[in-house]
Design a protein around this nucleic acid. Structure first.
Lengths: 219, 219
DNA sequence: TGCCATAATAATGTATACATTATGACACTA
DNA sequence: TAGTGTCATAATGTATACATTATTATGGCA
């Protein structure tokens, strides 16, 4: 294995899966397009086994769709799917918020992990780096899910966040929402810190639906 | 490969994954227990590659938890996790219901697939076979999700349904709810057929929460 | 010219073999 | 005896090689 040293000790299939999502987010792999194992192998200079395992991860997360003996294809997400994604996301984040608030009452220090995410968010905005910003935004929410420590929410969030990253990256006028993003996240932290469950649930709904670049869910 | 002929043309990692879930549901693998690749290999008489790919599928679905270089462990689900699962499930099934109703207005025949699931449910009850019943129950809901044809809902449902199967199988007094189960499902079909979105969304909530064997979500 | 059968190619699917890492036993030492 | 270091074992992680399946190109035939 001749992988770059910084990845030596990381989980290889997981890393490959992350990389494939980045390729999709960057537009190097387009929705509907077929993904070839060999192609990914050569890009990352690894054998087919970890790549195939990454494919299974992404398949279970809905990022790619696998047809037996016929290859894998990047899932296509229309505005309707984005709306669904956000609808489920809100529920997941609400449940997670309740858990984190309950846990933080016993140990307020756990919220520090969330606060630290704000630094990354500010840094990304200073660098005016879309990808860095999207990842920092998602890291904020991922941290909360992790703190909720739920074996149910975790995999669902991982699945959702894949799609959200791709969606955010292709969103026009993303930069215009930087200011609002900061204040939204600050407010979310404050609600967690004060233990205002109801307030947090309402605010998460607003925060997620704020862009409303996607169409509302059909009746 | 010396697998039984009936599985020759099925997706092997998928089949292995299903089998592992059955082992958990049957109690042959207990929550928290470590799952060895070799053990599964010998049980199903396949090599490690499809087994490892099945592990990745189940890992992304939250059925097992993998620790790098240290193996995989069956996820433990307490009553709190069951409650979360059902809370997310309701949202997923509500969204799916809306889609199916919309689609069925253009082609009412698609609901026949759901109606056919009732036969399997009746048969399972006649046979008084718990596993067959649980699978038929889940097949009913899986069919609706499939009809909704959503690349977002599908993987989330697959993840949820794994846990639901395990939960149902370990549920005492499951047999007592057979009658109610039939009437519930009949009612759900009727609501889909009449295109009553609101009614369906309410009924799904009742149906899922009916057992209430799990504790309510914490405040 | 259009259609079908067949072979060549290239992909996915699986098995075997090797490399690396964790774990437990055991002896050695303080 | 408690602690520690080393080695043996067994698991996971990865690479290579082979098998199977799908696709495409090609050539024969109507």
């Amino acid at each position: 294995m001749s992988l770059a040293p910084q990845f030596q000790h990381r989980n290889l299939p997981q890393h490959v899966a992350d990389h494939i999502v980045l390729l999709i987010a960057a537009g190097e792999l387009t929705p509907g397009e077929r993904v070839f194992e060999k192609d990914i192998c050569e890009r990352l200079n690894v054998s087919r086994i970890p790549v195939r395992e990454a494919f299974r991860l992404l398949q279970a997360q809905g990022v790619i769709r696998g047809e037996p003996n016929r290859g894998s294809f990047v899932t296509e997400l229309g505005s309707e799917q984005i709306a669904e994604m956000m609808e489920v996301r809100i529920v997941v984040e609400r449940i997670a918020g309740r858990h984190v608030i309950r846990r933080s009452k016993g140990d307020p220090a756990i919220l520090d992990a969330v606060r630290r995410c704000m630094d990354a968010l500010h840094r990304a905005i200073r660098n005016n780096d879309r990808l860095e910003y999207c990842q920092a935004d998602l890291a904020f929410h991922s941290t909360i899910i992790e703190l909720a420590d739920s074996p149910i929410l975790q995999p669902i969030w991982e699945s959702l966040s894949r799609g959200i990253l791709v969606y955010l990256m292709q969103e026009r006028r993303l930069e215009e929402s930087y200011d609002r993003s900061i204040s939204d996240h600050e407010r979310l932290i404050a609600l967690l810190a004060t233990g205002d469950s109801k307030g947090y649930e309402a605010e998460i709904g607003r925060h997620v639906m704020a862009p409303a670049h996607f169409e509302a869910a059909p009746l």
